[in-house]
């Protein structure tokens, strides 16, 4: 008899199996988030916002109130909700294109304003939904549909170091980390801390999650795992970049 691993309670069982490609990292990130929502007992207080790109496929993923927005605009929608209803726990879920390119002004300004929201940004180094074009996070030399000979930084520029930037522009109450689907327990811990930071209203909280895209990387299982586990962290170091100073009280 097969025993299936338990689904988080906050997941919407009716929409499983989920709609992501085989080998995609979104399922793992949303599993970590689902487990954290369960463990913290916040399912009835969360408002989840998802962007355009593959993240939009999570619009009915959870049994939590969810708004699917426009490309890059999940941050302002969640900021708007938080301003009007500070008792809600808002999560802006987006890809690297949405957060670092088309919606970068929203990320920069929400972080600078110290809006009490949590952003979870999935870095898989490509625009996946549109078919594998170069993303702000495409690594130097990496081949994509719009960098067929590899990303030439002289011509196409350098990759965006998101958490480093957010850490630099936020106040001391901010929480900033970069996790990976290859280090699931750590990623889950970062997501948990980010949400705790929002609930404590200490400051902006941001987690970048390194993730996989075998469909657009055109990699088999082994190569996919090698890329996310070994190669990506060479460009994108894992760990906490900013942990709020909690005042004794």
């Amino acid at each position: 008899m097969d025993i299936q691993p338990k689904m988080p309670k906050s997941w919407n069982a009716a929409t499983k199996p989920h709609k992501f490609c085989p080998g995609c990292g979104h399922g793992l990130i949303l599993k970590a988030l689902g487990q954290v929502i369960d463990e913290m007992g916040i399912q009835d207080r969360v408002v989840f916002g998802c962007d355009i790109g593959c993240s939009l496929l999570s619009w009915d993923f959870f049994n939590v109130d969810t708004v699917q927005t426009h490309h890059g605009r999940t941050t302002p929608v969640m900021v708007g909700i938080k301003k009007a209803r500070p008792d809600r726990i808002v999560i802006a879920y987006m890809g690297d294109g949405g957060g670092y390119a088309i919606g970068s002004q929203h990320l920069v300004n929400a972080a600078t304003r110290d809006d009490k929201i949590t952003v979870i940004l999935v870095n898989n180094t490509v625009y996946a939904m549109t078919g594998g074009q170069m993303a702000p996070t495409t690594m130097p030399g990496q081949k994509t549909e719009t960098t067929p000979f590899g990303r030439d930084v002289e011509q196409a520029g350098y990759p965006m170091m998101g958490p480093e930037m957010v850490a630099a522009i936020t106040q001391e109450g901010a929480y900033v980390a970069r996790g990976s689907v290859a280090k699931f327990r750590k990623l889950k811990e970062y997501i948990r801390k980010a949400l705790e930071n929002q609930i404590a209203m200490r400051g902006f909280s941001f987690v970048e999650a390194l993730s996989t895209c075998p469909t657009n990387w055109r990699t088999n299982a082994e190569k996919t795992w090698e890329f996310v586990e070994k190669i990506m962290p060479e460009q994108y170091p894992l760990g906490e970049l900013k942990v709020p100073v909690i005042k004794e009280g």
């Binding site: 426009h70 302002p76 929608v77 708007g80 909700i81 301003k83 009007a84 209803r85």
Partner: peptide, 23 residues
């Protein structure tokens, strides 16, 4: 309340957020 945003895209989308909460 009032929030000054970073551009009109954000002004429009934050307004949507506010409306979604029933305000």
């Amino acid at each position: 309340k009032f929030l000054q945003t970073e551009d009109e895209l954000s002004a429009g989308f934050t307004t949507i957020g506010g409306v979604l909460t029933g305000k």
